[in-house]
């Protein structure tokens, strides 16, 4: 008995030891698929559709990375993580990367030892209330019962916001967005607070979205982006430049429709370098020359991903706002492919 316990413990320790080693790309290639941590379900960002296929904006990033590595957007396994489990999952090597509405903060980057490779959505924390509550500003929320996902930055922002404004509230901690939605609709809490994009996505799934309003106050900066473990810069570069490729593609006018045609060669050297007909950018990453082409083929460039999953023509209906290209007054700006 004692012996089997020890062997069990040894095995577990050995496995974690193996997983935590560097060279993530080698592990992924040996395994044959990418393991991507996503939310437990937030329509538009990451949620399984009726056929059980994961769909969404964050999922699109995962698929693009899988396509860049393997040339196959389906070589990816999605692991749903909650606000509380996501960092442990990434740190322990259970997932290779997180693409999960995770805010880039100083302490997560420096103290938790993660590497945010970029920002795929500029967000801020908002509040949603039922119209019948008769509240038009977050400052009127004195005494409200607030549903809040635990283990998030929003939890800390919420505490700060109410403290600074000298109003009180009753936190109702919940684990997942689905749980929050259920509690909020049941009236077990008066207010639901999370990233404004998450509120819009959640409201879109309500039976009567018109009965709920998102209050005008945005109380924080929430730059959301994919992240990987500290220490393996080669792997971090792959995820970073895949994201940059999607953003640059929109800027350069590369879409899922014309990428095949453009990859044969154009008179724009940056497009040529990115799509592999010129230079050796793919080899520098340790990937095939057509890595970026594969990534863009999956769901199109950043703009296409946005419009298809969360854009104004979807039920979620988010405007580009801060997430427009820098050339169009937004904040998206990719470093050059050179």
């Amino acid at each position: 008995m004692k012996r089997s316990v020890i062997f069990g413990a040894l095995t577990v320790a050995g496995l974690t030891a193996g997983a935590a080693s560097a060279a993530t790309l080698d592990d992924i290639q040996a395994r044959g698929n990418l393991i991507c941590g996503v939310t437990t379900g937030l329509v538009g960002f990451a949620a399984p559709d009726a056929n059980g296929e994961w769909q969404g904006f964050d999922v699109g990033v995962c698929r693009a990375v899988a396509a860049a590595v393997f040339g196959d957007p389906t070589a990816v396994e999605f692991v749903p993580t909650t606000g509380q489990t996501r960092f442990t999952a990434l740190a322990s090597g259970e997932v290779d990367m997180l693409a999960r509405n995770t805010t880039w903060t100083f302490s997560r980057d420096v103290d938790l030892k993660f590497e945010f490779v970029g920002i795929n959505y500029y967000d801020g924390q908002g509040f949603m209330v039922p119209t019948e509550l008769g509240v038009s500003s977050a400052r009127d929320l004195d005494g409200a019962t607030v549903c809040i996902q635990t283990g998030t930055t929003t939890e800390l922002n919420l505490a700060d916001f109410f403290r600074v404004n000298n109003i009180s509230y009753e936190p109702v901690p919940i684990e997942t967005n689905a749980e929050a939605q259920q509690q909020y609709l049941a009236g077990a809490c008066d207010v639901y607070t999370t990233d404004a994009s998450g509120l819009a996505a959640t409201r879109a799934t309500f039976e009567n979205p018109g009965d709920h309003v998102i209050l005008p106050e945005i109380i924080s900066k929430e730059p959301l982006g994919p992240l990987v473990r500290h220490g393996d810069h080669d792997w971090g570069d792959i995820v970073r430049w895949t994201l940059n490729a999607l953003i640059s593609a929109e800027e350069l006018g590369i879409t899922s429709a014309n990428v095949e045609e453009l990859s044969a060669g154009t008179n724009n050297p940056e497009i040529n370098r990115m799509l592999g007909s010129e230079g050796e950018l793919g080899a520098m990453l340790g990937l095939e020359p057509d890595w970026a082409k594969n990534a863009i083929m999956v769901g199109g460039n950043y703009g296409e991903l946005f419009e298809k999953n969360i854009g104004e023509n979807t039920p979620i209906g988010l405007a580009r706002g801060l997430n427009a290209l820098w050339t169009e007054g937004g904040l998206l700006y990719s470093p050059p492919f050179r």
């Binding site: 606000g83 509380q84 960092f87 740190a91 302490s107 997560r108 103290d111 938790l112 030892k113 635990t150 283990g151 939890e155 800390l156 901690p173």
Partner: peptide
């Protein structure tokens, strides 16, 4: 939930 949940999550 406090020490074993949120605290761990916020401090790593």
């Amino acid at each position: 939930s406090t020490l074993g949940g949120i605290t761990i999550n916020q401090t790593g």
